[in-house]
């Protein structure tokens, strides 16, 4: 009996520890934000207008992000992904993943999008302190979230309390 349990536990531990690529998880999380966050109505041109997930500073996701959002909607809005050139101004989008490790660059982008209803996402430890909305961080090999509620409020984003429950509040 004990042996059986050990075998079963061992198997399930193995299954859990199966290495899932970090960016695949992050891609899913980006999509999931669209489910737990409500944007103000004026963030969309029409009810059928797409919800845009923007990625700036190179594409770390490959197919993961497009796989995660494929044929998915957020309410009435179809979800699409757009990749922005690092030098350009940040066009209209709803979720913005800032793929850079440079704090200066992050700060400048945050500055650029401040006042706009954009959920910004980055991994840098000071990101939420600088006014970023959501920060990914690693804890026990798991990706966790840190949310700056004031930043979200300033961007007029309504974050579901359920999301807040699973996130660390800055």
């Amino acid at each position: 009996m004990l042996l059986f349990f050990l075998v079963v536990m061992g198997y399930s531990a193995q299954a859990q520890n199966k290495p899932v690529p970090e960016y695949q998880v992050k891609a899913v999380f980006l999509y999931n934000f669209t489910q737990f966050v409500d944007w103000p109505q004026d963030a969309f041109e029409s009810p059928e207008a797409p919800l845009v997930i923007g990625v700036v500073g190179g594409d770390p996701f490959g197919v993961y992000l497009s796989d995660a959002i494929i044929s998915e909607n957020a309410g009435t809005h179809p979800i699409i992904v757009r990749y922005f050139h690092d030098k350009d101004n940040i066009p209209d989008c709803h979720v913005l993943y800032i793929n850079t490790k440079s704090p200066e660059r992050v700060k400048s982008i945050l500055h650029e999008i401040s006042g706009r209803s954009i959920l910004s996402v980055n991994e840098l430890p000071g990101f939420t302190r600088w006014g970023g909305t959501v920060r990914f961080f690693n804890e026990n090999n798991r990706i966790r979230l840190q949310v700056n509620v004031n930043a979200a409020k300033a961007a007029r984003l309504t974050i579901s309390s359920k999301l807040l429950n699973v996130a660390q509040i800055y």
Binding site: F29, R144, S160, L163, N165, V166, A167
Partner: peptide
């Protein structure tokens, strides 16, 4: 089920 949606969505085992 309703309460556990975020935990599932963001893989929060603990929650």
């Amino acid at each position: 089920a309703s309460n556990s949606s975020a935990a599932l969505a963001f893989l929060s085992n603990r929650d």
